[in-house]
């Protein structure tokens, strides 16, 4: 499985390299671009990106492994990230997790057999005023109730 950016992303990547004062600073944007395209950052992807960024795969992996948003393994089509930090916890985040867990028969960290949902507990999403919160892919869903969770997940199913 070799990796290459799609033409559109390749153009974006080149544009970024032009805009930033140094190539290595394009690391995070490039990783986001690649992960959006591939769903995860596999070994070949990291090797290819390292070449593009003039870095070593190990050095790039050093960065990748530090950040919780990057993943080196495939995840479900919908990544359900339930915030578990204080405000969300006080507002019932645990019940949200339990509910999703039961609903889809998956434990935290697991993916449904159909590859649709991956359930994660994450730390503070910065939306404490509208707790509890789940981030599903790019979107935040706030002021959750268990009914609301069902409605959201029904739409995605």
């Amino acid at each position: 499985m070799s990796f290459a950016f799609t033409p559109e992303r390749k153009r974006l990547f080149k544009e970024l390299v032009k805009r930033y004062p140094d190539k290595r600073s394009v690391t995070l944007p490039a990783l986001h671009l690649a992960q959006e395209q591939e769903g995860y950052l596999g070994r070949e992807t990291i090797e290819a990106l390292a070449r593009m960024l003039g870095s070593a795969p190990s050095t790039l992996m050093d960065t990748v492994s530090f950040y919780t948003m990057f993943t080196t393994r495939p995840r479900g089509k919908y990544l359900l990230q339930v915030c578990q930090t204080l405000a969300c916890s006080l507002a019932g985040a645990d019940q949200v997790v339990d509910h999703i867990s039961k609903r889809h028969q998956i434990k935290v960290g697991e993916t449904t057999p159909d590859g649709k949902f991956t359930l994660l507990k994450v730390e503070c999403l910065g939306s404490c005023g509208t707790a509890p919160v789940v981030q599903i892919n790019d979107d935040y869903y706030e002021r959750l109730t268990l009914d609301k969770v069902d409605r959201i997940l029904d739409k995605l199913a």
Binding site: R24, S25, L28, D62, F66, Y67, M69, F70, C124
Partner: peptide
Amino acid sequence: LDILVHRGAGAYICGEETGLIESLEGKRG
């Protein structure tokens, strides 16, 4: 003057000035 939007990737410590700068440089924060 130009301004670039640079997205972090999930690390509280990147809110600390120098952790942020390291992260902007493409490294662990």
